[in-house]
């Protein structure tokens, strides 16, 4: 009875770990991404995710010999899913998001861009010359929101 209770506790530890990992990952894209201080280096999310992996590891390792046969399997699953999701997040943050082309020669040597006319969000034409006579910020987005 005591063994089962302890196993359940460890099982819950694994679930808590996975839940923390999910919260750490999802909260980055749903909330923390909006703020430069938590977007550029997602320290808070990495902290939550690290805590989640630690819990999942604790649940995976604790008292393995006494646990019923099915329990280690479930705890292993919780731990490895937590670890895999964390790995994917770290891969995205520190590698995938850096996979953009280096600045081109056209960009680095650009002095005065040629005029253009594009359609705005109201489908009306807007020309670069419309802004002549005042400073203009042009921000290029990746799109496909």
């Amino acid at each position: 009875m005591n063994t089962l209770t302890a196993a359940n506790r460890r099982h819950r530890l694994g679930c808590l770990g996975l839940a923390l990992v999910l919260v750490g990952i999802l909260s980055y894209f749903l909330f923390f991404y909006r703020f430069p201080s938590t977007r550029d280096l997602p320290w808070l999310n990495l902290l939550i995710i690290g805590l989640g992996v630690a819990f999942a590891w604790k649940g995976f390792r604790a008292g393995r010999p006494q646990a019923p046969a099915w329990r280690p399997g479930l705890r292993s699953l919780l731990f490895f899913v937590s670890l895999s999701l964390s790995g994917l997040f770290v891969y995205y943050i520190f590698y995938l998001s850096y996979q953009i082309p280096p600045p081109s020669a056209v960009t680095t040597s650009l002095k005065t861009p040629a005029g253009f006319v594009l359609r705005n969000h109201q489908n009306r034409p807007v020309a670069l010359s419309d802004f002549r006579g005042r400073p203009l910020i042009i921000s290029f987005y990746r799109g496909h929101w």
Binding site: S139, R142, G143
Partner: peptide, 28 residues
């Protein structure tokens, strides 16, 4: 024209590389 094409940048489709420019009153 700004040299910002990112070939296959979004699910195989070409998109713009993120960039910001400030132009002065004369367009430089």
């Amino acid at each position: 024209a700004f040299g910002l094409r990112h070939v296959g940048g979004m699910m195989g489709q070409d998109i713009s590389r993120p960039a910001v420019f400030i132009l002065d009153e004369s367009g430089k």
